[in-house]
Structures are given as C-alpha cells and as structure tokens.
Nucleic acid binder design. Structure first.
Lengths: 348, 348
DNA sequence: CTGTTAGCGCATTCAA
DNA sequence: TTGAATGCGCTAACAG
C-alpha cells in the first residue's frame, strides 16, 4: 500500500542540471520559463526533467523566493452578507498566505456597473500576479479579463463565472445544478398535491441567478408537473423589496405553497413569512448560510439552505493560483466547490 | 482590508535568539520542546517568541528537516467501499505528503476484533509519529490509544471516535447529527400521512451506527410522531444479509414507507427494492456516496445519500498531525468534516 | 546546559 | 546565452 512508484530520494534541480549538462541557473531559467536560453538547451533541460520525474520542492521554492506574489480580490461593494463572509475568510487566511509568500488585498468594486468593473480590472495590470474577481458577465468585463491574462496575470473568477473569457479558472458552484437541487427539495417538501411555487431573485441579468432559475424550472417542469411555477420576481437582492414582493405574493396567491429565493435579501422574505403567520406552512428554500439564514432554518422559517462554502472558495482560489505560478500539483476533487445542502440538523 | 497588523517583515528564529540572548540552537531547542535547556532560559526564549510574534516558517522547517515523519493509517480489512475510498484518497495524496515530509503506510486490521486492533496499535509505538485509526470503541482499544499517546505518538481517530481516550483529535462527522439529518429527510419525503419506517444497520455495538440510530429516533419521536419506527435490523453491513432483511420487511409490512440504512451494504437493500418493484414508492436514505449509491440516486432507488468526504478526512487528518508536530496554524472550520447531503441533482 | 556550523533545494544577483 | 556564488530560515550534528 506504500508509494513504491515514487522514488524515495527525490531528484533536485541540481540533478536535472547535471543530466542536461547545464548549470543550476540555466535549469532554473527553463523551469520558470524565463527568457534568454537557447531552444536546444531548453529542450535538453525539459528532457532531463521528464527523465528524472523532477518536480520542484515547494518548500525550497518558497524559502528562496524573496518577492511576494501579489493578489487582488475584487469583490462587490455594498453590504451583502455573503460577500462579507468572503472577506472574513480572506482575513482568516492571511497567516497561511504569508507562509505561501502571498500578499493579498481586497478591493471593493461596484460590480453592477460593467464599466467600473472593467476599469478596476485593467488597473491591476502589472500590479498583481493574480486577481480573483466576482464578476458580472458582460462583454466589457470579458475583454478586460482577456487583456489581463494576455499580460500574464492569472485571473480567477469567483462565485459567478465569465465562461467566454480567458480566465484560468472558475471557483464556485455549478449554478444550474444548484437550481435543480432547490427544485427537488421544494418538490419533495411540498408533496404530491397540486400547488403554486414562487421564485424571487435579484436580477435575471446576473449569470448565477439566471442559471439557478433555469435549473429550477427544468426540474419543476419534468419532475413536478403538478406544481405551478409563478413568474419570477426581481427584488434586486434587497431585503426590503423582497418583503414587499412576498406580501404581494400572499395576497395574490393565498394558496402559495413554496418560495425559492435565488439570490440575497432572504431576510425580507422571512419577515413576510413570519408576520403573516405562514412561516411554518410555506416551504422556503434559499441560498447562502449566514447567521440569519441559520436562525431561520432552526426556527423552521426556512426549510433548506443551499450553500457554497466561502472559506473553501477563498482557499481554493489561492491554491489554484499557486499551482498556476509554480508547478505545484492540484488535487482536482479538492478544488471542486460543492453544492452544500443544509437542513436544521446538519448545520456546521 | 490588508493585513496591517501582521508585520511585513517576519521575525525569524535568529531574531528570537538575539532578543533572548541565546544561540540559534538553544532557541530551536525550546521551540521544539527538546530537553536540555534550563527553565530560566526556556522562559526567556518563550518571552521573546511572544514579544516578536514569532511563528516558524513552515517552508524553511520542511526544507531543513531530513527525517520524514512516519504515519500509519489503520483501516478495517475486508472489502468495504467507503474504506476503499479512504485508501484511494491516501494514495492520491502521496505527492503532497512528500512535499510535507510525510511518509505514510496503510495497514489493514480486523477492526471488529478489539484485541487485534489494540495489538496493531501498540505495534506502532516508537515506529510512527502519528497513527490515524478507524477504531472500534472498546476498553482494550482505548487503553492502547492512551499508551500510544503517552509514548508521544499523535493519535487521530478517523470516521468513528473513541471519545474517552486521549487521542489528540477526531476527524469525522457528528454521527448523531447525521442520524437527525436522515430523520428529517425521511420525515419530509414521506409526508404527513401516518406510515412505517424501517432501520437497517450493521451493528448497534458500533459507535457510529449507534449514534446515528439515536439521532434518527430523536427527531422521529419529536417531529414526526405520525411515523412508526420499526425495531432496528442488524445486517452486519453485509449486502446479502441486508437484501434478505429487506424482503422480510416487505412481507411483514406491506405498507412500509421508508428505509433508513445506517451502515454499509446498501446494495442489498437496493436490489430488494428494485426486484419487488418498490424502488420508486419507498423512501430510501443511506450513507456514503459510492459508485453504487450514486447510480441508485440517479435512477431514483435512493432518495438521498448522507456523505462524509473521504478526501477531506484524509487531508484533514494529515493537516492536523502536521499542526501537532510543528506550530503550524490550523484553520478550524476547514477541519470540520461536514455532513454532506446528496440528492440526484447536486452530485459532485 | 549551550553554542557553532553545515547544509536542505531553490531563486537570484553578479560575472563572464 | 550561460555559470558561479550567495542566502532564505530552519534542523541537526558536533563541540564545548
């Protein structure tokens, strides 16, 4: 059961250099893709790397490196609980980042304005080794991302993807699957009798919201045809607006059986449910585990919360960046962000 | 938003030594709790560590260390799918372990025999820096664990805990909560009409099974009183036995509404459900995501799978050990093993 | 009980 | 375009 295929004594860059008949410095140059080495030499070194199964020792590399890698997190400005969690997790990982020779900074950006976001992105060119961005999927933003990656900056999209861009990686959940998951929960919790289901979301122009909505409808249509899905209501992720929308919903559809909240601002929905005395007989499924949604889950106002772990997302983004810079290995299934389902019973 | 409280330039052991007026070697001795230093000197060094906010650089420490830390994984012998997943994950992490100066070995033990397990544990004394064990909670085992930790070996229980022992850490889920989670799923999926629910488990003498059973009953009794929970059936985690038990269940209770499978051997239950044509109208909730349970979920035979991520458990155990040995930081919420709920829609 | 010293494997000047 | 030399922060062997 032991790892017998990996040699007990690891090849060093020095070994590679010897086998390739070059100096340590040259070997290092080709390893780190630095210019100023003849093509033939590059080939020789790479061949030696292959033959020896060389992989750099991350510890040695970090110790020797003087310069810190600079990374920027571009997060939406404004008070969104989930974004707050992301910031907290960034803060919680500064020590670890120091150990990894990473220096990070959080920049608040008005994400809803594509122009501003693009400007903020472009301002990072040359300033950072990586930028992690919770982006709006818009042509202007896409092109800014592309320009950044051209310039050699690692770009990682966070939570909401910009799939058509050249970003190196997306860290976040599959939002269509998340929508489907919500639908199954709602469908099974409501039961077999015909009923109405409402959807409240921030805006259909947000990629993640649109995808969740799509997934939700898919499953509803195919697997729960006895349930009627009402037209989606856009509350701009605002609790106050959501509260109003929810109340209107109740008057228009006294027989409403369930609500799926796609975005933020769940507090408003909870309030409406509670004040109207319908908290326990309306199925309410929403996203993101926060102190508020946790309470709602425990007191029965919410029935399930679908979550993406902010801590995992931050660490994953960082690990992926590290892997891009060096030749460090990435454990694929460790970097897959899961769609967590929380009931009152399995809260962390 | 930047980390302004942590100094840009990190204190080194050398700095600590200077401030404490000792040599590097002595500083290192007290840092690593090695003997042969006067109490007064120890105090001076520790004071300097505190004042400077010193934390060792893990990269430097790993680079300098020649000896590998030796860890043993003691896993149940015999073909259990989940245990297989654990082994796979160990294998998948050998590269990473090498980077961390860890050398691991997997030992198959007959876990159901306390004497054998204890013997295997004791055999590790002096041989390993840490042992990760999927243990049976039994006095003989507990005392073996205690003896190991006395000897300075880090012991980490995996998947099933031995709480009364002096093991440094438990890596696994809260099984009572997992049982509660299962109950809520079953309760909500079955609906409001009175019905019967069956429980199949490996053995009530296994701590994790007993805890899940307990949690399940708790929630059933308090929140779903209209559901009748039948006496638990013990199938020894064996698929064949479970199939027989399930068939007997159907003849004895033609109106059975749900089955909660606490342990392994779900294949037998699925087979019984399918051959009797009840796969889609019996709620079936079980544990551990394997290729088989994944299929059952997708074809509707299973309704939910409660999982603990084998990969996370292995990496967590390793990280915790690393933290015990050195002063490396542990990110608490990263080490909490979550109770994952999988429906057909959020499969990874 | 304490100090001196020599690397660990790589990044990074500075020369050639 | 390439090489030699230095040092990152720590561990560990060796001296006293």
């Amino acid at each position: 059961m032991e790892a017998k295929n990996t040699p007990k004594v690891r090849a060093t860059l020095e070994d590679v250099a010897q086998h390739a008949q070059v100096s340590l410095a040259t070997a290092d140059r080709v390893l780190n893709k630095r210019p100023g080495v003849r093509a033939a030499t590059v080939a020789r070194v790479n061949e030696a790397v292959r033959r020896l199964g060389y992989r750099p020792d991350p510890s040695a590399a970090k110790l020797a490196r003087s310069r810190l890698r600079r990374v920027a997190f571009l997060l939406p400005a404004g008070a969104n609980r989930f974004v707050g969690l992301l910031s907290e997790q960034i803060a919680a990982n500064v020590e670890w980042m120091r150990d990894q020779r990473i220096d990070s900074e959080v920049l608040a950006v008005n994400v809803f304005n594509p122009g501003e976001l693009a400007k903020a992105l472009l301002a990072q060119e040359g300033q950072r080794d990586a930028v992690m961005v919770m982006a709006l999927d818009h042509p202007v933003v896409r092109s800014a991302i592309d320009q950044l990656t051209q310039a050699g900056t690692v770009v990682i999209t966070l939570v909401s993807d910009v799939p058509s861009s050249t970003r190196q990686h997306y860290v976040g959940i599959d939002n269509t699957a998340a929508g489907r998951t919500a639908a199954t929960l709602v469908g099974r919790f409501v039961g077999r009798q015909p009923a109405k289901v409402a959807i409240i979301l921030g805006s259909l122009s947000l990629r993640d919201h649109a995808e969740r909505y799509f997934g939700f409808n898919q499953v509803m249509a195919h697997e729960h045809p006895h349930l009627t899905v009402l037209p989606p209501l856009e509350g701009q992720d605002d609790a106050t607006r959501n509260e109003v929308l929810t109340k209107e919903l109740f008057t228009a559809h006294p027989d409403l059986a369930a609500i799926y909240s796609v975005g933020a601002g769940n507090g408003g929905i909870s309030t409406a449910l509670r004040t109207s005395g319908r908290a326990h007989n309306t199925v309410f499924v929403g996203h993101e585990l926060t102190p508020a949604s946790r309470t709602d889950l425990l007191d029965g106002t919410m029935d399930a919360v679908i979550n993406q772990d902010a801590g995992h997302e931050i660490r994953s983004a960082l690990r992926v960046a590290l892997a891009q810079w060096s030749q460090e290995p990435v454990i694929a299934d460790q970097e897959r962000i899961r769609i967590d389902i929380y009931l009152k019973d399995n809260l962390p």
